[in-house]
Design a protein around this nucleic acid. Structure first.
Length: 253
DNA sequence: GTCAAGTTTCCTGATT
DNA sequence: TAATCAGGAAACTTGA
């Protein structure tokens, strides 16, 4: 059995990468979003295989890349099906559980996302037979309806709070400036934004948009601005759950 | 069906 | 000059 990669596109269509079948251990495309592996028996007609796929044909492991950096092969020709990852890590399609920063598993393993977030995420992916890569937020152009199967997601301030209570992300991505006052600082602001985007399945998320959403909390008192300090915010009176007896940490991986 | 809440996207302008 | 901050406006989804 050989493996082929199955990619779910934003518009609901699917791509299968035949070059993986031809050269399963060397070059194949890694795309932002959900990438599945399917088992494929060499010698069978690929069209027939891919048009009759069942859920059980998919491998249990999927992964997605947060940031893609490809270099074209074939003397610089931009052939969409023949991009080669610049990362040696990405050229091995064996799922790993300690992925590099730009690569993470999308499976039931919980090492890459917060448990509170993952619980929702996991149930969603268990429940859905086919997962469509969606552009989150305000869609441009044609109207796009979100699936009814998609559960309610946590809010940004809860996401931030959970990061601060998680030794996996605090103090690497975000840290306390003053725990008693609820003041915190983004250490790697864009990575936090990307993490939020990953959670919301929105690869276009960045710190600019992330911080705009945070500023809306000033009105409601969930967050308060900290004057004169960049990347520093403070939990307001409406924020709950951040002040625990064990700030280091609520979650112990 | 309507509405409010919570974003996401895009924007301009100010500040560091 | 780039990154960040501030906030208006519009569009969108979700849940009540």
């Amino acid at each position: 059995m050989w493996e082929a990669m199955y990619d779910v596109n934003m518009d609901g269509t699917n791509d299968f990468y035949n070059n993986m079948i031809d050269t399963p251990s060397s070059q194949y495309e890694l795309d932002c979003g959900y990438n599945y592996f399917v088992n494929y028996e060499l010698g069978k007609d690929t069209t027939a295989v891919f048009t009759n796929l069942k859920i059980e044909d998919y491998s249990e492991h999927t992964y997605e890349t947060l940031e893609t950096s490809y270099q074209p092969v074939n003397n610089g020709e931009q052939l969409q099906q023949q991009w080669q990852s610049t990362s040696d890590q990405l050229s091995q399609h064996v799922p790993v559980y300690n992925p590099p920063d730009n690569y993470y598993m999308h499976s039931n393993d919980k090492n890459y996302l917060l448990p509170t977030i993952l619980d929702v995420d996991k149930n969603y992916h268990k429940a859905t037979a086919s997962i469509v890569k969606k552009r989150a937020g305000r869609p441009r152009g044609a109207k796009v309806k979100r699936s009814k199967a998609e559960p309610k997601l946590s809010r940004i301030w809860e996401f931030i709070r959970d990061l601060l209570l998680d030794s996996q992300y605090c103090p690497t991505y975000i840290c306390w400036e003053n725990y008693e006052e609820g003041r915190f600082r983004f250490v790697q602001s864009d990575k936090v934004a990307k993490l939020w985007g990953k959670f919301k399945r929105n690869e276009r998320m960045n710190y600019e948009k992330f911080s705009r959403a945070m500023r809306y909390y000033y009105k409601t008192g969930v967050l308060l601005p900290v004057q004169g300090k960049r990347l520093v915010y403070k939990f307001g009176p409406k924020a709950t759950g951040w002040h625990t007896n064990n700030p280091n940490f609520k979650y112990d991986f």
